[in-house]
Nucleic acid binder design. Sequence first.
RNA 1: GGGCGGAUAGCUCAGUUGGGAGAGCAUCGGCCUUACAAGCCGGGGGUCACAGGUUCGAGCCCUGUUCCGCCCA
Length: 893
Amino acid sequence: MDKGQLPKAYEFHDVEARIYSFWEETGCFRADEQSKKPAFSIVIPPPNVTGQLHMGHALNNTLQDILCRYKRLKGFEVLWVPGTDHAGIATQNVVERQLAQQGLSRYDLGREKFVEKVWEWKAQYGGYIIKQLKRLGASCDWSRERFTMDEGLSRAVRIVFVKLYEEGLIYRGTRMINWCPRCRTALANIEVEGEEIPGRLYHIRYPLADGSGELVVATTRPETMLGDTAVAVHPEDPRYRDAVGKKVILPLMNRPIPVIADAYVDREFGTGALKVTPGHDFNDFDLGVKHNLELIQVIGEDGVMTQEAGAYAGMDRYECRKRVVADLEAAGFLVKIEDHVHRVGHCYRCKNVVEPMQSLQWFVSTRPLAERAMEAVRDGRTRIVPEKWEKDYFQWLENIEDWCVSRQIWWGHRIPAWYCADCGEVTVAVEDPDRCGACGSPNLSQEEDVLDTWFSSALWPFSTMGWPEKTPELDKFYPTSVLVTGFDILFFWVARMMMMGLHFMKDVPFRDVYVHALVRDAQGQKMSKSKGNVIDPIIMMDKYGTDALRFTLTAFAVQGRDVKLSEERIEGYRHFVNKIWNATRLVLMNVEGASLLDEIPQKPDRLAHRWILSRFQKVVQEVEEALENYHFNQYAQSLYQFFWHEYCDWYLEMIKPDLYGDDPKARLLAQTISVYLLRNVLLMLHPVMPFVTEELWQKLPGTQGSIMQAAFPAVEMGRIDAQAEGEMGLLTGVIGSIRNIRGEMNISPAARVEVVCLCASEKDKALLEANDRTVVDLARLKGLKVALHGETAKPRLAAGAVVSGVEVYVLLEDVLDFEGEAARLQKEIGKLEKELAGTSRKLSNEDFLSRAPGHVVEKEREKAQRLGEKLEKIRHHWQRVEELRRNAAQSAG
RNA sequence: GGGCGGAUAGCUCAGUUGGGAGAGCAUCGGCCUUACAAGCCGGGGGUCACAGGUUCGAGCCCUGUUCCGCCCA
């Protein structure tokens, strides 16, 4: 690639595509499991194979990519394992919807044909999100891309299932589970989202069988009354003491059911009498077991009322609710209906209301596994960052319930269990058996259900590295260094990987878990298609470039707070990309053909060099510290501040005379150092802005190959130069004060003015004299005169300021606006007086003097003195201006 | 009902052992100064939600209140 030439603007479209192929072709992303370098590894949270890249993915993968690219530059052997998840229910839904358009259901095709169709669909569209990840710049080792239904991973799933079964940690049993009537499958408890919705509380009369009265129950789900098998009251509730042990007649069904007493009943809720439906409610189910109640299933798996619902059989559950209420009212059983907000469980995939029901399913006994998962975090083998998430992690694991892992769908890992038609025994095996393990009969049929997708995801950190084989990858890269993920899957995924990793690898799956926030819109609302507030990362990359999008997400990735994103912010950070481009352009224009110095002198004679080199060291430290601690926003902001406001605004402006000038030594030094810094800033920016930094890197002199193969800058403590930073403070202060006067006095930038600086010390005087060219250029002066106090008379017709003891006078001669200057000084005096008053108050406080630490008091004294001196000088100048103002007013009048 | 987090400039947010309230964007004023108008220079703008407490000193620590968000039942 050509060195030293840069188009006027950054054309990111061409550059991004070209550079990504370059990286792939040169094998920059490939991890070497034989490498002697220290290992750094990450497994990607596998996106759904059906998925489209959204902002959550963009944030998640940008952060991972930053860590991977940073660690490569720091000399680590980096493995980032990519891949996708088969997303059982979601993917099946997509293909079923497609079939529905042709008027077909999956049952029309049959299992085998349907699964084939899904594979076809996957082959056609499944790689889409991978392409999008590449577009984002993700530096994954694509040669190791995995899919949860790969042969190897499927085998791992089988082995894990069989092993857990043999260990008694997987069992099949009849339990209450959550059922999604839309997806027609059981769900794990955490796959149900409770959502508050406005509903109604129906008060229904249940007459006592002996005619001695009635009980009124309150329910939000009147249709379930058809399956009631008891009414429960609190044993100490005086209202119902007499009814306990009696029977009531269930309205509409005319079935006698018992009145039972149980302390579970909340006396405050409703009427204090609870209808009990063990078939369709978790709590009622427990009551039913405890009181030996009959369980009647009135709602079927399709959400339609069963034969048990009598006259209501065949009705949809919501239709049935309406009919039941109408019938109750007609028969005089309905007391009243109240508005009532309550929580209702929804399927996390399809958002339909789930139905609790009893069902025969496969479960994982999670308690023993959970114990070790907690242990590992407690003793620090795995660290969760930010720490506050540990609490949620522990709380969930402490209250964990058995995990329902069977799903009544077709797309997924079919459970490796076979039922014998002859003896009824179950054979669970890794290899498909041809005979029953119990009786030897060949009449076997495999379990129809598949496993929860999260079952295979839980194995991801080791299954992707070749487990159960003992692979060099596992040796080198397990446990992984860090898992980067959103808090929404802390339980679904992270906790389960911990359990499986510890059980099967005998070690944690990752050292750190970095939990990042959700991406929301500018108003803090969750992005969703229905709200129409989705910002599509692909569109943003098209409009502003990938680097701008990545930098924006990073700059807003503050620990513990959601990322509120708007297009304006991305647009804003595009300006930063542009700034980098143009600064590089400036430097390149001025170094063409130069043979730069091999080394940078320890103490360059120009202040600007010493200062920027000192600042640079501190920024390297800041950046490292930020990245090592996952303070991504700080990482982005340190570099933004340094590059734009120090390197560009001050340093480059200060060395322009050297770059343009004809002093060959000064020129070479400025060329060398500006290039050196640029190279290193690009290196530090590379993890977050991979494309533009690679493009510019290759244009810079002194670079070879890809920026990805270079080394991160090392901190050189010896270059930290407090004196240079202090001197620079005075210099920028003086320039700033002149600019301030120009701005406030409305002096045209074109007008060159004369400035006199009166210094309190020889040191300050020497400093300003040595850097007079800088002051003249950056403050746009005609000339600068530097003198000691008392050496020259104070200028009369001038606007003035005081900076660190230096009196700065901008000579305005006949154009001085006395009114304006007097007002400006008044404002300044007011500020100083206020500040001084605060300091004086402290210093006159005996308690402060006696109790505050010495250095704090000393600092306050210095401040008071500094302010006092400054105030005196400004006041003095103001008096002189006032005098002029009055004289002018007189002569005018 | 239980738990957690948040409230700082118009907006979005930093603020790491308690000791001079900051940034970006927006806004206002002035500039096409030969890297960049996607830019440069300058200005204005905050009772740090409220009420107490601890302390010489509180945005920061403690207690309570209000509002917002999330998780769990």
